[in-house]
Design a protein around this nucleic acid. Sequence first.
DNA 1: TCGGTTCGTCAACACCGTTGACAAACGGAA
DNA 2: TTCCGTTTGTCAACGGTGTTGACGAACCGA
Lengths: 214, 214
Amino acid sequence: MGRPPTLSRERIVDTAVELVARDGAEHLTVRSLGEALGCDPSALYRHFRNVDDLHRAVGDHFLSDVDVAPRARESWRTAVRRLCIGLRAAQLRQPRLAALVHAAPTRLGNELAFTEALFRELRRGGFRAPTAVRAYHSLIELTVGSAAIDAAIAGLAPAEREAEYQRWRADYVALDPARFPAVRSAAPHLYRGSADERFEDALDLMLAGLVARR
Amino acid sequence: MGRPPTLSRERIVDTAVELVARDGAEHLTVRSLGEALGCDPSALYRHFRNVDDLHRAVGDHFLSDVDVAPRARESWRTAVRRLCIGLRAAQLRQPRLAALVHAAPTRLGNELAFTEALFRELRRGGFRAPTAVRAYHSLIELTVGSAAIDAAIAGLAPAEREAEYQRWRADYVALDPARFPAVRSAAPHLYRGSADERFEDALDLMLAGLVARR
DNA sequence: TCGGTTCGTCAACACCGTTGACAAACGGAA
DNA sequence: TTCCGTTTGTCAACGGTGTTGACGAACCGA
């Protein structure tokens, strides 16, 4: 009964995902999404309470493609590493969500599956409950946290991103060596490579700490 | 020569800090700041290139009370630990503003002083430039990132915060042991203690990794 | 055929950051 | 003293954002 819908939450989310993939997350606006759907922007409010609600749905969609299935012949350490990298990648695919929502765990479908997988691997690594929890919290703090701060820059186009890094580096290189000797000598090496590489560095450091502590 | 200025970067930043403290960082806009200063919003552009420039200046202001002075008889590891904990504390003091700023380093006075101190200690710990930079990036990623995601919950009153943690824990405890065995058995230990303690756990893990790698 | 319901459209509202033209207020030079 | 150049705040506007309420088209059941 009533007018037949041309839109649906699913179609909207799918289009939003395409739009983010094509133009970057910063171009995902109610108006651009309306245009991509061929409808008036305000029509979206028939399916989502507000733009945050929409962002959540899009974020959930991205979280669904983290591969949490156990793999044969994979060490617990490699598995934990892979899980965290996958979580980060999924979160960076929806920056706005990564920056806001991760203050609290959603405790819903995809996130539960991920959490189970992470604890499964930690247990396999020989960590008992209280220690495993501390390791879990540490890994999540690093993975989700770093995704949150990398989200903004990850939304940029590669060329712009590199230009931004270069600008930061230039500022550090230009420092007075008398006042900032340590920073100055480290400056040429700052913000080389990708944020993903820096995250993996940090993750490996933490994993090394975990192994040393076990 | 020229018309005498009624504004200055310092007065603008001070007013912005008051405004953030009173209304929260999400209400810090060019227009509201102009009103608080009793001037036209566009006047701010005589002192800041854009709103990002302003945000960095305000954010840097909050870093001023991190103690970065070197201490006698303090190991590099203890010093690095203290510096990171101090940085986190400063950022959690203005949670919402931290959310605005954390995307990019401010590269201004207080942040430079902090960065210099951190590199000074890492160098003292025997790390050479490229390795020190990787350690620096890892520590910052963890410290700033975890502050970003802890910011929201840190703003709550202690009682509310504990109630929130208990709610999360209850959700995990209520899970079906058949589908989520690993999470279920870890559940009673989740979100015990403070976010600060969990951060220090993670930091110690990373420091242990650093030592192991050195 | 009629009423009720759904849902996309349209026009507006209240914000946001930012810019360019303009005027007021000064110091120095003529 | 007059005039000029410079600084600096004011003003009006532009294009962008999310959001809302009135409206009408399109359908179903009675």
